[in-house]
């Protein structure tokens, strides 16, 4: 490999472009915050209460939205991993890292809200249901990704192995999505699927969605997928770039 200790070729940005990008990100973050507040308002005041489950049902919107946010950020990590293997440009790996860190946060929110909802509805915080198990494994796989990453000192090798592992790990995400097809005995409700086909399942805690609920769900989904997830990833990418830059300056300084 290259003689330079695996340092990526860094393209210095023009100061003006960087500044306008910062302003764009700041604006995006403010918009995210506003939309998030609005979705919270819809969730609490517009969607209406579920008669059987009471207030706790409202967690469902965040629960679904955070899962799909995680799905998209892990998906971004896969595409970035493939791009990294093809081009070997460090920025793809940075994108993958950001995707996985943010995905982990969202997957955690998904697990936590699910667990908190399950306490009053299923009468337990956790049960080894196929879907819950696979979601937990998905979370742990991406924790393993971070551990693998931290275990490799050579930056080029780290990016390479991380990309490959990030691609492999997506298998657990797919597994979580399809498991209700191959294990129909899950007690996890499939609210969206039952809207399309009323299949008799063993789901406990399913509920009918009113049109207001559907609207709230769609809005919340859009906010988390198109605003919360990308905004967090963007900040994380900037942090990583700053870390890279500092690392390079340090190396330069030590060489002198």
């Amino acid at each position: 490999m290259s003689a330079v200790q695996g340092l990526p070729v860094y393209q210095p940005q023009e100061a003006g472009a960087g500044e306008s990008r910062t302003r764009l990100l700041q604006g995006y973050s403010v918009a995210t915050l506003l939309l998030l507040t609005l979705s919270l308002g819809l969730m609490l005041a517009y969607a209406g209460q579920d008669v059987q489950q009471g207030e706790v049902q409202r967690l469902f919107y965040v629960h679904i939205a955070s899962f799909f946010g995680a799905f998209f950020s892990f998906g971004a990590a896969v595409l970035a991993g493939i791009q990294y293997l093809r081009t070997r440009a460090a920025r793809w790996d940075t994108l993958a890292l950001a995707g996985i860190e943010v995905g982990l946060l969202l997957a955690f929110i998904n697990l936590a809200t699910g667990s908190i909802w399950a306490r009053p509805i299923w009468n337990t915080w956790w049960t080894w249901d196929p879907r819950l198990t696979s979601a937990a494994v998905m979370f742990l796989t991406y924790v393993a990704y971070l551990m693998l990453r931290n275990g490799i000192d050579n930056p080029e090798r780290r990016r390479l192995f991380a990309s490959i592992y990030g691609i492999l790990a997506f298998g657990t995400v797919v597994f979580t999505l399809v498991i209700i097809r191959i294990r129909p005995d899950t007690i996890h409700p499939t609210v969206i699927a039952t809207q399309l086909s009323t299949s008799g399942s063993e789901a406990e805690g399913a509920f009918e969605m009113s049109s207001r609920m559907t609207q709230t769900l769609l809005f919340t989904l859009a906010v988390w997928i198109f605003f919360v997830t990308p905004a967090l990833m963007w900040w994380r990418i900037r942090l990583e770039n700053a870390a890279e830059r500092l690392h390079r300056l340090k190396a330069q300084y030590l060489e002198e």
Binding site: G54, V56, R58, L59, T113, I116, P120
Partner: peptide, 14 residues
């Protein structure tokens, strides 16, 4: 309708 407000708040806080 059961009162599950506390759980909802917990979920939102988390």
């Amino acid at each position: 309708t059961p009162d599950t407000t506390a759980y909802m708040l917990l979920g939102l806080i988390v």
